[in-house]
Design a protein around this nucleic acid. Structure first.
Lengths: 243, 243, 243, 243
DNA sequence: CATGAATGAGCGTTCATTCAT
DNA sequence: AATGAATGAACGCTCATTCAT
């Protein structure tokens, strides 16, 4: 009913960077870098860890792999992190926030685009982001299955995504623009899973997968069809967002 | 498996059960059990391995965990399998084939059910199977990322699933019963990913997830909507379509 | 001075076959084969063991290698032998006795050949025997360094060889046919070592070593030179072996 | 090594010490010690390995034996070497080079000693060296039979020895000082085998073997006799051949 | 006599982690 | 801050050996 919450960035960021901030703070107190140089080394380690995890997976990755990639010795690692899990948490926290962006476009009251166009734009944004981060997301999700702390991170992340999208669907249903028989939560979950995993499985950049534009188009169509998304009665005469 | 109307079934099945047979034969020749007792022990090991992998994941699982759960010594394991990968292959090969069943229902020419009913039945079958096997599937998929032999198994498995479903969609499109703008392969891929992962993530039996029936209903609806599945013009004489 | 001891075979055999007999008796009492078939299997095992030891060396050889080569299971081995050392003793005991033959030719009073010819004949016999058995001899000697029981066997074997030859040299020296400044024992030891090891190192049949005839000729020459072997004053007029 | 009159020395030496240098360099680059303390530990390990191999042989030697003897944990070993073979290579490379010294004395043009004296000196040098290193040489040779890399080391080592000596014999033959009927290569091989193995078998320090001086004298005599070594035409006043 | 199943001891190796410098 | 040395725990795997059949 209301003219949409806020730019979702606003909602999304706090959630993630909240966790982020907490983690950093924690580390800072413990054994974080106290000098400029230290901070740089630490950043290099996080970057290296991400790359190594993407390449070899979490379990196969050795701490020395990470350290070496950061141009450090194996034991220097322990100046900054307590364990592999520890640095993975940092990697997760540093993940590009654009992963959770794009959904709000669908309902953006200022937009003059058709719902179809909006969904397409949103899908493109998300798939692009996921395609880029799919590998590390896979790692995080994998680890989350057997590591409590990572699971929390992952869940927070995923739930936020789902919550936003569920809200969008509800809004559309209320305006009579989406199939009212759909359960917003379950459907969102299913479609989110589809998007994320499809990107992870079939859109990895080095994969001989589908043409990206075609994939975006088809996934978009699935969304629109699945939601039975209709054009608002009077598309663009005047603002008609109350349905 | 049941009588298979579609050709794809016919081609696909041998592929998988062929690999299956080969794997078993290989093992049998190599160091498989040569006595009744041995066969039982071997089976116990496979069962134990599945359970352990599901609980701890592949990397965290120790061979002794498997052996002990089967009531054996660590070293007895090596009478039957060469490595953890080896027994995982066996576990994968022994996976309930119902995982790949159900799709053909959709096109079954002998059926008098409406498309909606058919999809619902297929979805239920699949989701039930996946809900049961999701954990181990997750393990297999995880390992497949860094193990060639397992990847082959996984790919064969997944491809078969996708191929069958894509065929169904094409058939429906040709009969004018499904949205002709959809690319059967991409859409199948996306929807298959959705089903499998949704089951894996939100339907695990011990999970506080959704009500299963509701979930089936919603996923079914997504399918039907996504494909824009229509009733055939004159289904049978009369239909008292539930719905 | 005496007309030479006996045909060395006579001396040699008791020594070796004595050990042999003792070993066999021992085994027979313990767990030797009690049936015809058993004896054959046992023989097959010994044969197999020799071959395996020659191929892989003692330490690298596995009991299962031996058993499999004999067409048996690994555990059947234990019906006949207690350990690898055990069967190696048997292999050693069964070694071709011709290894220790040939030396007596040098002094054979019935021979009409020149000393040069006799040495040549003896060398050829020995080198041929050693060339054939060098591999297994090497194994035995190697094991003898750290296994008391095998060391006894090896020493017996080697000492007998040396003793006979030393005797020959003494005889020749007494007849004024060999350099009197040589210490029969040390020289024999050195020359025996040379012969055995040269065969082992440079005459192995599958080796791209020297031409066998040339090698025999050269080794013979070394012997003759080293001993400063001279023709007896009246070579072949009549038997003059009493000196 | 000393000033080398013969060309073979010149060519041969680089070959061996080249391999030597390469091996060391390789290790140094890989995982060699990078500190003073590390270098000492490494040296202690090599020393310990030599001792253990001599005592127990290569196969019987456990890595923990070596580590413990060096006062280290089992796993510390792996900071310096990759495997038992690896450290054996190091032990072999560190072998006293005097093993290959002495031969050149025989032809040394600056020497005023008689050939007999020269050979005696050379033999003494060699036998002393071999007596000291015989055990480890035996181990190396033993391992070389089934290990390619060690075989190369051993062969290089042995070939150099043989090549030098063969050159000496040829020179002597050309000057009419040695039996022209001898094949330099085969004879060298045989005599080298004799020397090395005799030392190994009968001169080990803890062995109840022969008196060392007597042994040297006898081996020397065998050499001189075998080569039919004559005094050069005007070496001393007149030939005073010990008959 | 022979087999297959099962065991237990032991070894090589890896790796995260700690410590002294 | 960073390094190299060192440790200890753990794991995979091999193999000789025993046992029931």
């Amino acid at each position: 009913m209301e003219p949409l919450p806020q730019p979702s960035q606003a909602t999304a960021s706090p959630a993630v960077s909240g966790a982020d901030a907490r983690l950093r703070a924690q580390r800072w107190d413990d054994d974080g870098p106290r000098s400029r140089r230290g901070a740089e080394t630490r950043a290099r380690l996080v970057e290296a860890a991400k790359a190594v995890f993407e390449e070899k997976g979490f379990h196969e990755a050795r701490i020395s792999d990470v350290a070496e990639r950061a141009g450090l010795t194996h034991s220097a690692f322990y100046h900054y992190f307590d364990s592999k899990e520890d640095i993975l948490r940092e990697v997760a926290a540093a993940l590009d926030h654009t992963l959770n962006a794009g959904v709000d476009i669908i309902l953006d009251p200022t937009s003059t685009a058709t719902p179809h166009e909006r969904v397409a734009a949103a899908m493109r944004t998300r798939l692009e982001a996921h395609r880029k981060e799919a590998r590390i997301m896979g790692v995080i999700e994998q680890v989350s299955r057997h590591n409590e702390q990572i699971r929390v991170l992952w869940t927070q992340f995923y739930q936020q995504h789902v919550k936003e999208m569920a809200h969008s669907i509800e809004q559309l249903q209320q305006r009579g623009l989406a199939d009212p028989a759909l359960d917003p939560v379950i459907v969102t979950d299913a479609l989110a899973v589809m998007t994320i995993r499809f990107a992870e499985q079939s859109l990895l950049q080095d994969d001989s997968g589908y043409d990206f534009d075609t994939a975006v188009e088809q996934i978009t169509r699935i969304y629109i069809n699945a939601l039975q998304l209709r054009e608002p009665k009077k598309p663009r005469r005047r603002r008609d967002d109350t349905g």
